[in-house]
Structure formats: C-alpha cells, structure tokens
Design a protein around this nucleic acid. Sequence first.
DNA 1: GTTCCGCATGAATCGATAG
DNA 2: ACTATCGATTCATGCGGAA
Lengths: 288, 288
Amino acid sequence: MSLAIKTKIILGDCSYKLGELEDNSIDLIFTSPPYADQRKNTYGGTHPDKYVQWFLPISKELLRVLKPSGTFILNIKERVVKGERHIYVMELIIEMRRQGWFWTEEFIWHKKNCYPGKWPNRFRDSWERLLQFNKSKKFHMYQDAVMLPVGDWAKTRLKKLSETDKRRDESRVGSGFGKNISNWLDRNKAYPTNVLYLATECGNKNHSAVFPEALPEWFIKLFTKDGDWVLDPFAGSGSTLKAAQKLKRNSIGIEIHQDYYDVMINTLGTIKQQYLFEKKAKYETHSD
Amino acid sequence: MSLAIKTKIILGDCSYKLGELEDNSIDLIFTSPPYADQRKNTYGGTHPDKYVQWFLPISKELLRVLKPSGTFILNIKERVVKGERHIYVMELIIEMRRQGWFWTEEFIWHKKNCYPGKWPNRFRDSWERLLQFNKSKKFHMYQDAVMLPVGDWAKTRLKKLSETDKRRDESRVGSGFGKNISNWLDRNKAYPTNVLYLATECGNKNHSAVFPEALPEWFIKLFTKDGDWVLDPFAGSGSTLKAAQKLKRNSIGIEIHQDYYDVMINTLGTIKQQYLFEKKAKYETHSD
DNA sequence: GTTCCGCATGAATCGATAG
DNA sequence: ACTATCGATTCATGCGGAA
C-alpha cells in the first residue's frame, strides 16, 4: 500500500464512457459542460432547445456513479437567444430533480474580468452559475478547509505572511515559527459565502481553460478529503484534474477531443485509458 | 404646468389595487415581493408550492400597466425548503414567459454584508436575483446614467492620455483643448456589468428595508428618465419611492400593511389614496 | 532582480449583410 | 422569413520585453 494518487484520463464521449465507471464510487463531480451552441469549433455545439434532452442521460449516469455522500457541482450559464436569456438551465434543474437529484444550492462565480463588449440593451455578463446537486441530504462538507481571512485589513497582511510562511515551510520544516503563524491565521478566519469572486485565466496557454484552477480547487477542498475520487466528465484542458492532483485526490477525466486529451496526458502524467483496459483494472478505489 | 413630481401611495392588496392603474402607463416596475413563507407576521405568507399560482395574476396586471418600452425588475430569491433550494423562482420565470413577458436578463445583487449564521451543510447566502422582464424587445435603457469610474487599468492609460494632452497643450495653446479634456473624462468611466456589489442597509430603523435604496436607484437611473413613472406594488417602507423622488421620477406605491403605509405617508409627504379618489383623479401622467 | 508598459485575448452579444 | 457569418464594441489579466 502506497499513498500514490491516481489521475486517469479517458478519451471519448462521456455519454458512453461513464458506463465504465462503478456505481457509488465518486465523491465529487466538478464539471463545466460545453454551453449550448458555444465552442462550436471544438465541441459539436448543442442547440439551446435540445440542451436538456442531451444532458439528462449524462446526469443520470452521474447520479449512478456518485456516492450517496457525494456532491455534483455543475458550472453553467444560459446564453442569450433573440434578446432573451434562454430557459434551458431552469428546465434542466427542474428535470434533474425529477431524476432524483437534490438541488441543494446555487453558488455564484462572480468574474473579476468578464468578456468585453457593449450593446444597447445589455451589460457585460460577469457571473456564472455553480449548481450544487446531491444524491442525498447527508453529504460530506468540510467547511474548515475553505475558511478565509477576515476583512480587507487582514487580507493584505495575510497574503504577505502566507508567502513568507510558504518559503519558511519549504526551508525549515517544523521550526515552531509556522505554528505561531497558523494560530494567528486561525483567529482571523471566517467562513466564506456562496459567492466566489475570481478572475478568469485568459491568454496564457495554448488551450486556455474556461475556468480558473482556483474554482475546482475550492470545491474539491470543500467536498472531499485526501484520497477521495474526483470526476470531470468534460475534462477539457484538465483544470479539475490538476487541482485534484495538487490536493492529493484521485481523479478521473473524460474528454472527447483528442487535442485536449493530449494536453492532459502531457501535463498531468497519468494512467491512460489503455493501461486501464490492458490490466482489466477499472479505477479501483484501493491504492496500489 | 409645474415640474412637480408626484408620489402616490395606495393602501391595499396589489392583487386588487393594480386594477385602478391605466394600461401602458408605467415606465419601470421595481419590487421585492414578500418571499415565500418568509414574512409570515406582516404578510399572509405564501407557501412555496403556491407561490407561482399566487404571483401570476399580479404579474399579468403588471404586464398590462407597463408601457411597451418599460421594464420590470423583480428582486427575488428562493428559500431553502427541506435542505433544497425551492424551484418556484424557476417555475415563475417559465410561466411569466408564457404570459407574454420577455426574460431579458438576470442581474445579481452580490451583498457586501450578508446575514450571519453557520450551518453544517450550507454557507451564508450573499446574493439575490434581480430578474429583468420586458414587454417588448425594444425597451428604454439609459446606460450612460450608471457609468462607473474605471479601475486600475485606466489609471495607466489615463496617465498616458494626460501626457499626450500636455504635449498637445504645449504645441497648440487653446485650440482643441476642451475637446481633449472631454475625451479624457469619457474614458475615465466604464459601463458596469450585470452584477451589483452593494451592502445591505443595517436595520437601524423601525421598519427596515429589504434592500438598500441604492438598488432601486440604480435601476431607476438605468431604465427611466426625469418625469417617468415608477411603480412598486409591494412598497414596504418605501425605498423604491424614496429613490424615485430623489431622482425626480413620479411614483406609485401599493402596500397592504397599515404600519408600512403610515411610515411612507410620514416619510415621503405624498398624495394619498383618499386624495386620488376624492378628486376622481387617477395617477394622471400630466403634471399639475 | 525589479517595475513598468504594451499588447493579445477571452463560454459575449448585437446588428447588418448575405445566402 | 429564417439561418449563417462577420465586424464592432470593450476591459481585466498575464505575459514578454524594455527601462
């Protein structure tokens, strides 16, 4: 038994590939499916009127693979169609509840930097939904893992201190000084709210992510613990998996597009699908 | 003819009192109806399951009284029922669209200071919906009225512009200087987004408002001009009407509760319902 | 090494134009 | 009439090169 963390990437359509995963095996699903008719060049693009119909079979599979104590976070935003916000997200929530999901909460991602533009009838859209669904009303939530510094005054000081602390932590492990710092930090921490104020990461990489790594990171901390299993059925460039690795969680990503798959293989250093099937080992939950 | 601004307050249930208003006469409806089961002591308290059914006749009347160029802003947030967010807001949006409303946009009120509290399965709720509905796709919007000072990005640019301006000033004294300045001022402002980051007003008063005055103020600036008509069918302590007065808009408030009605009468110095009926003058759109 | 500046770029949306 | 494509608009961010 080692403490090795697994990151498994599957190339293919999650509509089919989810069938390979076992029942009640995933602790957190965090994903951002392609929005309706968006990203046409990389994904097919689903018409807004058919979006719910397309997504429901997938969400049914997600319900199957999720542990009863697990959580599903769905990052989504309805687009504007003919001057109106389309209602497919509303309809999806209603239909997923019929499917057996509990719609526990709606978090908001308030984007620091949103897309530019000016229109006579509309301002720039600077927020997205992070819908929390659960399989049961008893789910795991580790609130202490995402506590925040209190107030603006503390924020600036904490930033500097935490950076200093990091460096010290690397050079001198267990010097006793870090403990003082952490005590000081604890006293100045508060629980966050259901609004996340984060910037998008844009213009840095070949395949830029649709959300910053801090987003999955926050939810992974909140809803899982070390060694738990995280799933992203629309893995894209792998932000969710990267965050999971960083936090020592096992993870599975499914991605239909070869380019993104390659990016993940190169970036994450993973157990590939081939390995899985050659060994006839599914994503076993025990460690090697 | 004077430029006097009218503020009219009607005591009664808006389900009935809206019938007294003329068709196509209101430029902006801004309201925050009693949330489901939330204010049992002051209002009847509508059960979440019957909320849509209760609200639809009211929204039908609102559709009638609104000008085709007008806007309806609905401040609402679904409550948690048995560990889940209830879906009555989703259902309401879908049903109001069937009624003929366009669901143009969803603004978010991101609360700077939200209610304290701690629960094992949920963080504090720090946002509310501000649903924008329209009667037609051609509605009035005065975006310049709500422009904001630009952030850090502009500061650098501003520096450069002022330098350019200086050079121009040196080479051509007097000519075109004013024009440059006005460009400079214009560029100092940016359009806002669809997220409003405002603090709640702490309940220092007897009848605390459910939203800060800055909230209706922002939408009144954005969707009306001087002398337009603003309606709040759930006027409460009168924040909407106060903002309308301040901005020189005519307004009508309907309030079912005597206490709140009295507060408004004392605060706003208004034309009362009695006056209206004695004179047989409805809320005429011409000024006195 | 810093700081500063320029520049590209993003889950966008509208209106006009073309087929 | 209905869909498809294109240009214009616009701002926070991060990167790279320069001072």
